[in-house]
Computed example of a mutant assay.
Amino acid sequence: MAKKQTESFNLEDVRPRLERTAFVPTLVAVTDDPDYVDDETVLGVDDLAAAKIGGAPFLSKEAPAPKCGKCKQPLRFVLQLRRSELPPAAQATLADELLQLFWCDDCQSSGGAEDPWSKGALIREVALGEPIAPATANLEDEDEDADADALSVTFIRDWREAQDYPSPLVESLAAALEVSAKSEATRERLETLAEAMDEAELETLDGVKLGGWPRWVSEPETVKCKCKAVMQPVIQLGESAVVVGDGGTTWIVACPACGKKAYFCQQ
């Protein structure tokens, strides 16, 4: 229910209602080629069971390499999280030890990223068991492409707590404060609040994070589960971490009612 429109939007008064706890990791880019070691990339090897972006996923007989539900081509592995390595407050969002995200570059780049239920992407949760070797690269692929795939491994480690704030857009602040922004007077007060947040440097965290507020690339979106409940963000992957099509930010969202998960992207 919308609150009274005469409510004060003084920053110090509403700040506790705007704050959300997010968890931000340390990202470690890894390569097994000494020629590619630099200030941002360390020498190392991949780990099938690690929390990471890119590299090779953990596969088993129960969770084999998936194919696109649209074009039937193999899906590209994007993300893997480990429940036991998440902060305790976030572990309840996973039902099994590993959460994995795969997508089809072709189908997702051609509009699938706008559909949370696209068959061109797969989110699954799997238990750790007896692993099977990941599929090897197609020998007909160009060497340059194979090298690029082999080097794109980033481990996700050492989650730390941070305070997060909603986007200083009128619509985002109205939703966060549970008010209607239809009246001009309310919009003006929300704009004044946005200016105060900007001066106080209260920003929406970019990049990779668990929970918190979405850092929108365009207009704020609401994703509803098939059971009609509003889904909440589990993890955000900023465009500096994962690129879909022409770039953008990716989210995995979960239904608080039934636990179903979906994926969407803004470009």
Results as ranks from 00 to 15, higher is better:
Asp164Thr: 06
Ile156Phe: 13
Leu237Phe: 06
Glu203Gly: 03
Ala194Thr: 03
Ala146Cys: 01
Arg157Thr: 15
Glu161Val: 04
Val170Leu: 08
Gly238Asn: 02
Glu201Arg: 15
Glu171Gly: 00
Gln163Tyr: 00
Gly211His: 09
Trp251Glu: 05
Tyr165Arg: 05
Asp141Lys: 03
Leu210Gly: 05
Leu237Pro: 10
Trp251Lys: 08
Val179Ile: 13
Arg157Ser: 05
Ala150Gln: 13
Ser167Lys: 09
Ser152Trp: 04
Trp251Ala: 09
Arg215Ala: 13
Ala148Lys: 07
Tyr165Cys: 01
Ala146His: 00
Leu169Met: 05
Gly211Cys: 03
Thr250Pro: 00
Trp216Gln: 01
Glu178Asp: 10
Gly245Phe: 05
Glu191Trp: 03
Ile235Cys: 00
Gly247Cys: 12
Val223Asp: 00
Val223Arg: 00
Ala146Gly: 01
Gly211Tyr: 08
Gly245Tyr: 06
Gly238His: 05
Glu142Cys: 05
Glu178Gln: 12
Glu199Asp: 12
Lys224His: 14
Arg215Val: 04
Pro166Leu: 01
Ser218Tyr: 05
Met197Gly: 03
Glu184Met: 10
Cys227Pro: 14
Phe155Tyr: 14
Phe155Leu: 15
Glu140Tyr: 09
Lys224Thr: 11
Ser218Gln: 08
Lys224Leu: 10
Val153Arg: 15
Glu171Phe: 00
Arg160Ser: 15
Val230Arg: 13
Leu205Glu: 12
